[in-house]
Write a protein that binds this DNA or RNA. Sequence first.
DNA 1: TCTTGACTTAGACATTGTCCAATGTAGGAT
DNA 2: ATCCTACATTGGACAATGTCTAAGTCAAGA
Lengths: 138, 138
Amino acid sequence: MSDLLERLRGRGWRLTAQRRVVAEVLDGDHVHYTADEVHARASERLPEISRATVYNTLGELVLLGEVLEVSTDGRAKRYDPNAHHDHHHLVCSQCGTIRDVHIESDPMSALPEPERFGFEVSEVSVTFRGTCPNCARA
Amino acid sequence: MSDLLERLRGRGWRLTAQRRVVAEVLDGDHVHYTADEVHARASERLPEISRATVYNTLGELVLLGEVLEVSTDGRAKRYDPNAHHDHHHLVCSQCGTIRDVHIESDPMSALPEPERFGFEVSEVSVTFRGTCPNCARA
DNA sequence: TCTTGACTTAGACATTGTCCAATGTAGGAT
DNA sequence: ATCCTACATTGGACAATGTCTAAGTCAAGA
Ligand SMILES: [Mn+2]
Ligand SMILES: [Mn+2]
Ligand SMILES: [Zn+2]
Ligand SMILES: [Zn+2]
């Protein structure tokens, strides 16, 4: 994700300590943190970082297409740095754990023209729900 | 939806005026109201109905499987009385309008066994996003 | 080093949803 | 028809998530 910082500088971003730690928190592969989880982890490295800055930075990364917003339940949105590889999500209904999954067919082609109602359809997301192995053992 | 009231009575529900108007508001086909929209519409018929009762009633209807909860964006959940016919959703990214859509392939079968990570997968939802004809004209 | 516009901060505010104690009532019992 | 009572409703406090603003700070080009 160090190239992310390069890309951002290329876009005219000021590279502040706050933006650096947010990028570092999102660095791990396959993480899906809420804004407040990002804030908590960022605060470990930079204790004075504010919630507003975390929200601002996440919003900017989403606009730039570097991070995806995922709303699985009606709870807090989750932020997904895996924005450059198409994938979908498998969510545990009990504990909320999210796994990235790859599917075999193109879901976009499953929507026939007459079912598009004149919309310009640009995006499709598939969310599988179930019980994870951990929760099943309980 | 009058048979809904029958089914509810069969389950031991007390048929109160509040529950009746909530059911009436949800009666129209293909509606996807937020809880507060249901409350606003219910208030037109029964001005003293409280937000708490609307939330309670919607939650109970969801538990009974009579209404589906739909979280498309990170905003308020929407309540979908079309619970007895499998369908998916097409959402306008700009105005939030939701249409019911039917797709051609079974998305559940698109998730290969090795991509299930030991989950017991029970449900799948497909959400298409785009621009509706109304918003495209602007 | 200076300057300046972009960035950050704290906290107020907004929206959505949950919870509780007090009050009301649907529907069975008499 | 009236009474009882467990279930339902109410208003408002509270919680979780997210947005906004005014004042202070700083990255980076001149
Ligand atoms: Mn992901
Ligand atoms: Mn629907
Ligand atoms: Zn789980
Ligand atoms: Zn629209």
